[in-house]
Nucleic acid binder design. Structure first.
Lengths: 235, 235
DNA sequence: CAGTGGTCTAGACCACCGA
DNA sequence: CGGTGGTCTAGACCACTGG
């Protein structure tokens, strides 16, 4: 333990290298906490932290009473970060503007009511807008909001504050789920995004939960030719 | 500290609730480790573990000497897990089969050579196959493999072992990057996936690194009508 | 039963920040 | 300078696994 790095990091690094080199294959037992104590002259708390963090990262699996093993399949798992679109465009040094198509109160259909967790016919907020990057449309956003989660949603100026940002600030996020598909745009979406009706789009359906309420349900349509999701994974 | 839950989890949960309820807003200071020691009657190591894990989860930020604060914007960040397709299909209780279209050695074009990190004209492996779930095509996989990373790649029986699995077993994964877009299929892809040329597809480009080598570059085409990526996020 | 991981404590030394 | 987080130790009790 001579390096400048913390001891628990040195232990992690040593284990990582044995796994990455293929020397320790999936399913094989990794040195136990007491073995690491001897090998590195560290306390058990330190050895424990190393193994626990590697387990959190998915590199090893631990079973009480049995031991620590190299994880079976290095699943390629990576963080997909969903960000406020205004922030994302700004970070590229571009200008983000918004075209507001609809800001309204509506009565929830049966299907929508079920998704939002409100009674059928209850009052819900509905916004439709288009996000532009340097005047080029990059996202069509069709969103329903539960008034219980964000009572003053409709008072927001959506040309200044994106719906995502308003919700993040007024309805702390506790849970979210999404799915990504490839679809053709509807006629209205194609028109607003200024693309052909045959241009494929990435469609993200996103549902966010804030505390006890479903806060919002959104359908986000991205022109396939102008947008992609990217991610990275490091072992 | 009466509950059945570990003390550090109880402390985390207490903090999470104050954040989720909106009581503690982004930027506000969270109780320090010593404050938590008093409040819960735990040792500093335990209080430290609670705050450290919350920081790893992105809920708070910590600055040495300054303190712990509620993180600025809850970015909706979620794990996108990319799995071996055979395993994924099997888990749904369906049958996975493979149609092998090409297994060959080729000379790398300039562009491909650059991506794979080999010399132009170097020998590379090239496979093309279609994955079927209950006899329905769900993925067209066009893959180039660096022989340095998996010398016996071509000896594999791809009807039994998927390329992903072979690579995971023979070339331990150290890094991966991907991007997801919406595209129309090529004529060949449409034919093999048994879809119309106008049906949008999800296309994932994936690049994996094993140790010092780029192991493989793959283009994975999913029929939009039969596949979606889903994910979830919990605060 | 011995070996493993899961948790917790009391105390310690250090580096850093801000008044 | 005091308060904060970053790390580490020696020892402890428990629950679980496997032979």
């Amino acid at each position: 333990m001579t390096d400048g790095l913390p001891a628990y990091e040195q232990v992690k690094e040593w284990i990582r290298q044995h796994i990455a080199s293929g020397e320790w294959k999936p399913g094989m037992v990794v040195p136990s906490e007491s073995a690491l104590m001897e090998r590195f002259g560290v306390s058990r708390m330190t050895a424990n932290r190393s193994l626990r963090e590697l387990a959190n990262e998915g590199l090893v699996t631990r079973v009480q009473g049995s031991g620590t093993r190299v994880a079976e399949l290095h699943r390629i798992s990576s963080k997909l970060v969903i960000r406020d679109i205004h922030e994302e465009v700004a970070e590229r040094g571009h200008v983000h503007t918004t075209r507001v198509l609809k800001v309204a109160q509506e009565q929830a259909s049966a299907e929508l009511a079920a998704s939002l967790g409100v009674r059928k016919g209850a009052r819900v907020f509905h916004t439709v807008l288009v996000h532009l990057e340097n005047s080029v449309p990059i996202q069509y956003e069709d969103r329903y909001v539960n008034p219980a989660a964000a009572p003053d949603y409709l008072d927001s100026d959506f040309t200044q504050v994106s719906p995502t940002l308003h919700l993040l600030q007024h309805a702390p996020l506790t849970e979210a789920s999404y799915s990504i598909e490839a679809c053709l745009p509807t006629a209205e979406e194609a028109k607003q995004l200024e693309i052909a009706k045959t241009d494929p789009c990435l469609v993200m359906m996103r549902r966010t939960v804030s505390g006890a309420n479903v806060a919002s349900i959104a359908r986000l349509v991205y022109p396939g030719s102008r947008y992609s999701f990217a991610g990275q994974f490091q072992a």
